[in-house]
Design a protein around this nucleic acid. Sequence first.
DNA 1: GTCGTACTCAACCGAATGGTTGACAAGCAG
DNA 2: CTGCTTGTCAACCATTCGGTTGAGTACGAC
Lengths: 125, 125
Amino acid sequence: MDETDRLSKVFAALADPIRRDIVARLTEGDQGVGELAEPYDVSLQAVSKHLKVLEDAGLVTRTREAQRRPVHLEAEVFDLMTKWIERYRQQAEERFRRLDVLLERMKDEQDPHHARTTTRDEDAS
Amino acid sequence: MDETDRLSKVFAALADPIRRDIVARLTEGDQGVGELAEPYDVSLQAVSKHLKVLEDAGLVTRTREAQRRPVHLEAEVFDLMTKWIERYRQQAEERFRRLDVLLERMKDEQDPHHARTTTRDEDAS
DNA sequence: GTCGTACTCAACCGAATGGTTGACAAGCAG
DNA sequence: CTGCTTGTCAACCATTCGGTTGAGTACGAC
């Protein structure tokens, strides 16, 4: 499984509110499937499926401890997302910064053509 | 649309590799639908749909400029994700830090029961 | 061994997703 | 007005997704 694929699975896993909530609650410590399922108005099997999705995304691992199967959060995967987001956020912000500089320069030059249809997109191109 | 809903849509939008790539390319500047569609082996209509998903998630806005409809990246939405991720990442890391302290204390006390079946999950519970 | 606990697996179902093609709309260019 | 460009909308289709119920498995308690 390559990184693109992994990233897709992580984002898809966190697209579901129940799964996001499970991840949130797991930061408090490992929990069994039954405990995790309790707050939601769905069957235990449904939660078991959600956990499989989280596991496939690498967000969670499941071990065995007597009859219980404690679920453990693997927080390192967050890094993958954070890296992706930060990379493009920074690029986007850099672009906006350059745009601001450009606009500032245009203002300084007192450009008489400045009054023409100045849509944001035209400025940015 | 509440924040949970919004977050779900953003994550879902970025779960698709084509949509992630479009977002990445838009950091270079606004682009028309045709330009955006060119690299992918899917129809223009398919890309148009992808853009609608990104727009519904608030990641992108579409304006009109003659026949073209330039697509513009709204980088602020990244913040929503980053906040969510960071919150739980930090909680998770805090928990691991506490766990490390606990383990350290156990070691210091030279606990003679330490040799029993020591799975990672047991340690964490 | 038998019972209860804690789950998972399998089959099914309706809704959503990602793709297609075909028809339509909005705006220049002649 | 006609035609070309640039997209969108609508209908359809196969696959995936999130849920269900029912059966099965793994383990500890008795």
